[in-house]
């Protein structure tokens, strides 16, 4: 049961990070934390389905792919805007 609480805690920390922080790196870390939380949830619920948990591995792998794209994008964005502050990147609106 403890693991579920940890997962829930991680999820809220990640969500807080993404929804409140302005720094792109912190937002990226928030997303990664959320991914870990969900993966943890998969791992923790594995005993319910008889210990078969290749799902957790696949979930972690797709999360990894997203992380790679985020990092690549953040690097490019820094080159274009000269800042990592997401609230400065508001050319598209309306």
């Amino acid at each position: 049961m403890m693991t579920f609480f940890v997962a829930a805690l991680l999820l809220s920390i990640g969500l807080y990070c993404v929804a409140v922080k302005r720094d792109l790196i912190k937002i990226a870390i928030g997303i990664i934390i959320m991914e870990y939380a969900i993966t943890l949830f998969f791992v923790a619920s594995a005993p319910w389905r008889g210990g078969e948990d290749y799902l957790a591995q696949v979930a972690a792998l797709t999360g990894l792919a997203t992380t790679i794209v985020i990092v690549a994008l953040v690097r490019r964005l820094y080159g274009r805007y000269g800042t990592l502050d997401i609230s400065q990147m508001r050319r598209l609106k309306g």
């Binding site: 937002i27 994008l73 990147m89 598209l92």
Partner: peptide
Amino acid sequence: AEELEASIRYLIIGS
């Protein structure tokens, strides 16, 4: 710049 900006927002919301 605009394309990267659109992409990062799409990515975060999408994730």
